[in-house]
Every structure is written in C-alpha cells, then in structure tokens.
Design a binder for these strands. Structure first.
Lengths: 218, 218
DNA sequence: ATTAAAAATTAGACAAGACTAATTTTTATT
DNA sequence: AATAAAAATTAGTCTTGTCTAATTTTTAAT
C-alpha cells in the first residue's frame, strides 16, 4: 500500500502530463519528463499497473486509475501546500520553493496535509498560481489561457506560470514579472513566433515562443 | 557529498548511541538500534569510513569524524525544529511528531533549518525536552538526571523524556505526565527495581525500572 | 505498398542496501 | 589454558530501480 519515492514520482508525472494534453501519456513522453530511459518507464508502468494505480494500453499509452489519480492529487496537494508554507512563513523566494517542496511532498502522514491547510488558512493557490486541491481532491479550474493565446495590444494580468523550474523563475525575476504583473504583447515575429512584450507599462523586451507558452494570464 | 537516507540514519544512530554512553559504538549495538543485521551494519560502516564520516576500529567500535558529527548534528537540528513546528503550529500531539520529523529531517536545503529556526523564534528545546542544536552546532547541555537517580520522597519536575517512541509517549499521556509535571518516587522495590511514584501530588502508581530511566528530571 | 524513422519492448547488467548462512575472532568462564 | 558464548566478518543472494544494447512493432512518408 505504501508507495515508494519513485512510484510517487511516476504517478505525479502521469498526472501532470495527462492534465496538459488531456490524453493518455506515451512511454517516450514520460521518459523525457522523468529523465529516465524508456526501458525504465516500461518496467515501472508494469509495477504500477499490477498495483492498479495505472492503466496501460500499448496503443494508447498510460493513464491513472481512480486510485492512482487519488494518490497523485494527494501528492500535488502536499506539494502546493508546502510551497505556501515555504514562501509565506519561511520567506523563501519564488524560485527556491519548488525544489524543496519536491522533497516535502513525499512525507507521509494521514493528517499532515489537512493540518498544513488549516494552519495556512486554506489557501486556494500556491505561489506560482496553481490551484491547491482541496481536502476532497477537487481542483478548481484555473485559467488555461496562455500569453501565447492573447491578442496583440491587449493588456493582461499574469495569474500563474506553467513552468516552475528555477531557471524560468529566475528569468522572470530578472524581468520583474510576478503574479499580478501586467503584460501586453506588442508584436509577434512571424519568422520564429517570438514576440515583443511590454512589462508593467514600462520597457519592451523580446521573448521566445516558449516563454509565451509558459505564462498564464486571465 | 550528498548523503543517502540510509547513510543519514546510520550517522544519526551513531551520534545518539555514542552520546548516551560516551563510547565508541559496537556493530551489535548499532544493528539493534537500526533494526538491521550486523552484516548490513558492517558494509555501511565501510562506506561511511571511505567517505570519512566515520572512524571504525575493529576493537573499539565506530565513532563519528568531525565531518560525520557535523552531518549528524545537522540532522538532529532539523528533526527537533520540525518537531516544534509540528507541535506548535500544526497542533500535532506529543506522540505523533517524532515519526513525521523522522521523515522531515532528511529534506535537504542549505537554509531550511535556519529559516525554520527563525520562524519558530529560535526555540531552545523540542517538545520532548531535547535541546535543539544552534546554527553553529552547539548543543546546550540538558539535565542528564533521570528519575531513576532521584532521591525517595523528593518532588521533581519532568523536563524531558529519553525515549521518544509513540509507545512510551502514549503511556505517559495515559498517566497524564508531560513536561512540567511533578513526580515523586515514593518507594523502590528491591526485587525488580520497580517503583511506586506519585503523579502531580495525586494518585500513586507502580512503574518499571525502564520507566524510571526514561524520564529526565531537573 | 514499401520503407525509413520513431516508439515500444525485451534481455541482461549493475549499484545500493538489505538479507542469510557460514566462518573467524574476541571475550569470558571455568 | 581450554572452551563456550558472543561479536565480527565474509561470501553470496535478493529486490528495487536504474541502465545499455538489441529487437520488434508502429507510424509516417514516399
């Protein structure tokens, strides 16, 4: 019944990947996401299938069973609650919290998440703008709109990021972009889909397509 | 440089065992404490010796090097700080916190302990009365006096426990003994060294020698 | 339809950290 | 000093979760 660290990381990866694309997840995708080989992924999927946490169909790929999804949501809930504690109580910055929460999310105790939740005042979102699953496992649907979808010339508010890596967050910090910042796409360069954006009604800078696809707006 | 979970648990065990007896620790003692076999202990001590965290002498047993002790103190510091957070902020009870902290103590981040320490107001002791090593690794010497050393008929205050197992702590809870409680040894039974003690100037009960040796008094 | 590329799978190896079952060394006791 | 008991050590096995190197299957493109 108890899950290993590896098992939990696979469940989480499948959860996030199938959430993005709403599809079953391929071996190759999982392997890339976990930085493991395809061979390793296959053997772990066998294990998780035997534990009835994952459904695996050679053709369509992997998805979580009800039980697997429950386990994954539990991990995500802990991750995001710990991020709130790290940021709000321990004064860690945006780009530091993810890696610490990555460790904390694997601490097991039946009541831990709920106690944390209460202590933190039942926060709805983590510091990166991601919704925190509630005690029942319900996840409030957050804007799926990306900066890359926005209309040119309209000012928008940053509500979250799709990429929590410290690499990306450090870049945002350098640009002085945080949740609540105002952005406007001024121009899209046809050649490579990069863009010129204006930050907080101030300076304009050029950013890549990848950048546009990593910012959630309202 | 990074330590595995197992390595950390060995360092911690050697630290606690050599602290109690002030001596080098034997394979057998370590094996019992970690609930591993002697064979496993030997192979891990080899590994830790190679990493220069442990000195091992076939005759005298194992002890920590300077670096090993530093690592162990760091783990103990984290363990006790997390216990304070769990008890004071998350409202976990005496007997629940140890097992959770046992997991939390292995979360790695260079600043985590210090941020926790600050957030908690630089506590001196954990909820079991054990001293929390400070940022430099200094550990304030706490009363080493055990209830088993006390004079008959003198009332004493409980300042801590030597055993943090939930088994023992549940027993104490049932007896309504906590830090600050007043105890008096009324009688020692020669036959088996058990004793009759009075709790909080109220009822008297009979307890074992092992019990007497698990309570720290001032 | 054929074929090249991509994806999935199998087979076998390896490191970590545990184990059991001898065997050897040390310590204690008569 | 002889010997029994305890402790330490060695040798070899097992499980978990990785890996590499084929090999097979699927997909896509001509």
């Amino acid at each position: 019944m108890t899950r290993t660290l590896s098992e939990e990381n696979y469940l989480k990866a499948i959860f996030h990947l199938s959430r993005n694309s709403k599809e079953k997840v391929s071996i190759t995708t999982l392997a890339a996401s976990l930085e493991n080989t395809a061979a390793s992924v296959i053997s772990m999927l066998r294990k998780l299938t035997a534990k009835e946490l994952v459904d695996y169909d050679k053709k369509k790929g992997a998805s979580l069973t009800r039980a697997g999804e429950k386990a994954a949501i539990d991990i995500v809930r802990k991750h995001r609650l710990w991020e709130v504690l790290l940021a709000e109580k321990l004064e860690f910055s945006w780009e530091e919290i993810h890696d610490i929460a990555e460790q904390l999310e694997h601490v097991h105790h039946p009541e831990l998440a709920d106690r944390l939740d209460k202590f933190l005042g039942f926060p709805q979102f983590d510091p990166h703008g991601h919704p925190i699953p509630d005690i029942k496992g319900n996840i409030s649907q957050v804007s799926g709109k990306l900066l890359s979808d926005s209309t040119i010339g309209i000012e928008l508010e940053v509500v979250g990021v799709k990429d929590s890596s410290s690499m990306f967050l450090n870049y945002l910090k350098q640009l002085d972009i945080k949740i609540g910042s105002k952005l406007m796409v001024e121009q899209i360069i046809d050649f490579d889909q990069s863009a010129v954006i204006k930050i907080n009604k101030g300076s304009s800078i050029s950013v890549s397509r990848k950048f546009l696809e990593s910012i959630l707006i309202n």
